[in-house]
Design a protein around this nucleic acid. Structure first.
Length: 568
RNA sequence: CGGGGUGUGGCUCAGCUUGGUAGAGCGUUCGGUUCGGGACCGAAAGGCCGGAGGUUCAAAUCCUCUCACCCCGACCA
């Protein structure tokens, strides 16, 4: 490709709308332009990268028995009503009507339509398993699209759905996808980690996410420094030390704590640590309230709480609401005496505490020397806390550390949730009708491109991993005089199927170098008078900044050698 | 949806407080000098100041409404 013909309008300055690096650099490098919030045009450079990622995804899906197909983006409402998700999905679904006022949506995901397709055609266990996938745009009217391609309302996703005869088959499919996903992100040249994940709204009972490690990631992951345990912080658990308590158990004692409401204030006033307190938080479920007991220095994990309470719309009740609706003294609330008035859930850790301080449900008073097991009534205990960095791994004696990650893929065991809702049955070898056992597996293709940048950039621009770079070689001349030589190199490389972008523009060298750094093509070959005088070209690797001189007649061989080395 | 912020040539922004009819840098076009890390000189094109309504002799500037976009929270590949 000749750069003079390439439609890649680069920008010198960073557009004000872009906050994070990948968004800024994709705009500046002439890769994307915005059409509306969360909707982008992919210009040629971006599309080349996306096609490479898609190709890697295809190869790995096919290797594990996947078959590519294409499902409609516009889907009839009936299917979604049948599965019950027409209402559940809510405002996140783009909805539309045709001229006959029939309702449709733009597909946010495709369980409904694929399950229907399969159930209509598959009768026998002999036709299973099936692993079907597609790569196409998905539409989700996100509450808040942000960070460029990181959270778009239209994005490219690969989604594969597996249909098996039983749990063992599902396990095979799940493991196949686990392997495939590891290969995909490895081949893309990314540093990533598979982590345990909450299975969330899609349903099902086992799930892992693939996280590209990057500071800009929205997710926090906790991983063990000794074993391979790693989990999304939404899901992570830790072993919390149960301190041996051998002090004297005393009766609880009411103490005046006038004006001291927060954990901090109470601790300072009573000269104790936050670990010796239990805080009582109130959540609204939409249909009522629950009280949550948690150690004073812990955080409630609202995902875990939502799962335990089977509630999607949890919200922390405001102080005003506690005061006015629940009639409780904000700052002095505790579980003692609440029994019967409100459902009380406690974090497991609380049950192991001794001689703690809690609010007394009286203005300006707390209880001291409370024994949770003895003094709390009607409390159900669950794991409700956020695990934290520094705590002990749930599986071994190692400790947890945290990292930020960008979720680029997730694999789910769905079980029979959708096959049941949509009656996807088959006849087994005994002639018995059974439900298909399903899994679903997604890769955010456009997000993977953004994540690759978040992980590979410097102050001058992008540093593409070669496997997904828009071109492999950026060939630059210092002045137009070297163009004939450069064109010969260009032809030689192209003949070997090496993708070269030749900067044949009549620009000053500085401009070309700046644009080259911005675009981030891995191998930069400069043909200039200095090198040419010795029959050499200058080579600079974008990723490392290392420079070499290559004799002109070895450029093709050395380029191939470098690319092959990268592929390993 | 709640909270915060921004809309002025393609990009970055000034002007708004204290109304007087729009500016700079970059980019673009043309001419010239240049040419190994975003050159220099000269000339030019390009904006009904997000939109609607109002106040006023006069509105980018004040008021009302509205739209879009960005950031923080709930959602998620």
């Amino acid at each position: 490709m000749l750069q003079s013909k390439l439609f890649a309008p680069t920008l010198r300055e960073t557009p004000a709308e872009a906050e994070i690096v990948s968004h800024q650099l994709m705009l500046r490098a002439g890769m994307i332009r915005k059409s509306a919030a969360g909707m982008y045009t992919y210009l040629p450079l971006a599309w080349r990268v996306l096609r490479k990622i898609m190709q890697i995804v295809r190869e790995e899906m096919d290797r594990e028995g996947g078959q590519e197909l294409a499902l409609p983006i516009v889907q009839p409402a009936e299917l979604w009503k049948e599965s019950g998700r027409w209402d559940v999905y809510g405002d996140e679904m783009f909805r539309l009507e045709d001229r006959h006022h029939r309702q449709f949506c733009l597909g946010p995901t495709h369980e409904e339509i694929i399950t229907t397709t399969v159930k209509n055609e598959v009768r026998s266990y002999r036709d299973l398993p099936l692993r079907l996938y597609q790569i196409q745009n998905k539409y989700r009217d996100e509450i808040r699209p942000r960070f460029g391609l990181m959270r778009g309302r239209e994005f490219i996703m690969k989604d594969l759905y597996s249909f098996d005869v039983d749990e063992a088959g599902l396990e095979d499919s799940y493991q196949a996808m686990y392997r495939a996903y590891n290969n995909i992100f490895k081949r893309c040249g990314l540093k990533f980690r598979p982590v345990e994940a909450d299975s969330g709204a899609i349903g099902g009972n086992a799930s892992q996410e693939f996280m590209v490690l990057a500071e800009a990631g929205e997710a926090v992951i906790l991983y063990c420094d000794q074993c391979d345990y790693a989990a999304n912080a939404e899901k992570a658990v830790s072993q919390v030390q149960v301190s041996d308590f051998n002090g004297a158990v005393k009766e609880k004692e009411l103490v005046a704590t006038p004006g001291h409401k927060t954990i901090d204030e109470v601790c300072r006033f009573l000269n104790i640590q936050a670990e010796q307190t239990v805080k009582t938080l109130f959540y609204g479920t939409g249909s009522g309230y629950i009280a949550v007991l948690i150690q004073g220095n812990d955080q409630v994990n609202e995902i875990k709480l939502g799962n335990v309470t089977n509630s999607k719309k949890l919200y922390l009740v405001s102080p005003e609401e506690i005061h006015e609706v629940l009639g409780l003294p904000v700052g002095y609330v505790g579980p003692i005496g609440l029994d019967g008035q409100i459902k009380i859930l406690g974090d497991n850790r609380v049950a192991n505490l001794h001689q703690v301080v809690v609010g007394a449900n009286q203005e300006d008073y707390h209880y001291l020397q409370v024994e949770p097991v003895r003094d709390f009534v009607g409390v159900d205990y669950y794991d409700l806390r956020m695990a934290a960095s520094g705590e002990q791994c749930p599986r071994c004696s190692g400790h947890l550390h945290d990292l930020r990650g960008i979720e680029v893929g997730q694999i789910f065991k769905l079980g029979t949730k959708y096959s049941k809702a949509l009656s996807a049955n088959f006849l087994d070898e005994k002639g018995q009708s059974r439900l298909m056992v399903m899994g679903c597996y997604g890769v955010g293709v456009s997000r993977t491109m953004a994540a690759a940048i978040e992980q590979n950039y410097d102050g001058n621009g992008i540093k593409w991993p070669i496997a997904i770079a828009p071109f492999q070689v950026h060939l630059i001349t210092v002045s137009p005089e070297q163009l004939p030589v450069a064109k010969e190199i260009y032809e030689n490389l192209s003949r070997q199927n090496i993708e070269v972008l030749l900067d044949d523009r009549d620009e000053r060298p500085g401009v070309k170098f700046k644009d080259a750094d911005l675009m981030g093509i891995p191998i930069r070959i400069t043909v200039g008078p200095k090198g040419l005088a010795q029959g050499e070209a200058e080579v600079k690797f974008r990723a490392t900044g290392n420079e070499e001189r290559w004799p002109l007649d070895q450029i093709v061989a050395k380029t191939r050698e470098y690319i092959e080395k990268c592929e390993q």
